[in-house]
Computed example of a mutant assay.
Amino acid sequence: MIIGVPEEVKNNEFRVSMTAPGVHELVRNGHTVLVQNGAGVGSGITDVEYVAAGAEIVVDAAELWARSDMVVKVKEPVSSEYVHFRKGLVLFTYLHLAAEPELTHALLTSGVTAIAYETVQLGNTLPLLAPMSAVAGRLSVQVGAQYLTAPFGGKGMLLGGVPGVRPANVAILGAGVSGTHAAAMAIGAGADVTIMDINIARLQELDDHYQGRLKTVASNAFEIERSLVQADLVIGSVLIPGAKTPKLVSNELVSRMLPGSVLVDIAVDQGGCFADTHPTTHADPTFKVHNSLFYCVANMPGAVPNTSTYALTNVTLRYTLALASLGVRGALGSDPVLLAGLNVAGGSVTHHSVATAHGLVLSHDWKSLI
């Protein structure tokens, strides 16, 4: 199979979908890998390294897409890339289609087979989303601490305080991978941290692990309100696989929050869990809502591309190799974990959450579509 690795074109996206070791593994198994010129520079990977691993460097993006049987990306295609879609093409990347009606339509009309990293599911885990969720969770505390400082528009507060001065009050919505990593970072920085979730068993695990250093609260509207009106930093990390994120924080509630408080919405890719969330970029990451500052960058891990690229390839490579070696039908048919990632094929929606989000008919017969 011919696998294409294009340069990411989303605003300030420096990650790339394949490392040089990943290329080497695919080539070693008899596949051809096309890498767009300069695609890895943002992640510290040169064209020379890719060539040494066996890749062919392609200058023109249109040529790369046209020659590839499967295109492996990091972020969902932007509108300028829709022109490359065609019947028979396999697209393997983060898609977040529940929050992307235009992209969903473009994929359906073109006949692309689209497999989304974020819905590949193993039991209750999302193995291809987990490393980026970990990065985003840890990064959310770093950026939250930065934007709490006065030069960045915050209240001028040090996250961990100092002796004699209270630390920041951090409220985390969601105790999944992102929320757990955010809690670890915030506790490590010395903040006063509360995490909320509807999964009591998960809260029990965290309580046992942190031995009282982390406050755990069963999530409901009353407790969210009580926590947020006292919070200096709020991190939204709620996720329903493949579906739009529920809005847990209203505009009215934000109006009653402490002036200068910061809200970081990790869930922005799936629509966000704050009512006023809209996607921002690393070039222009924040906006004000009442007296609070919102940070809603839709590709947070793109700020640390070296770490993120290697973490991503570590988990995607085995599935990329399976798709290339067995073919799409063979790989999906032999692995229900990967099959859960199939979102669109042959002009039909094949994932229930995407169909529900857009009011589309769900196809259950994926084999007839590929």
Score class of each variant (00 low, 15 high):
M1T: 09
E13Y: 09
V35H: 04
N37W: 09
G40I: 06
G40N: 10
G40R: 10
G42R: 03
V51R: 10
A55V: 12
A61F: 02
P77W: 01
S80Q: 12
S80W: 03
E81Q: 13
K87N: 14
F92D: 00
L95K: 06
L97Q: 03
A98H: 02
T104S: 11
T104C: 13
S110H: 04
E118N: 08
N124K: 15
A136S: 14
L148C: 10
A150K: 15
A150T: 10
G154F: 09
L158D: 00
L159S: 02
A168Q: 05
N169M: 11
V170C: 11
L173V: 02
G174P: 05
G176C: 09
H181M: 14
A183G: 07
I200Y: 14
A201D: 15
D208A: 15
Q211R: 15
Q211Y: 06
L214D: 07
I224C: 07
Q230H: 11
I235L: 14
G242D: 02
V249I: 13
S255E: 06
M257Q: 02
V264F: 12
V264W: 10
A267S: 15
D269N: 14
F274S: 01
T286V: 14
G302K: 03
N306S: 08
S308C: 07
A311N: 11
L317H: 13
R318P: 13
T320F: 05
L321Q: 12
L321N: 07
A324P: 10
L326N: 03
G330N: 00
L338R: 02
L338G: 05
L339M: 00
G347T: 06
A355E: 03
D365L: 00
K367N: 04
I370Q: 00
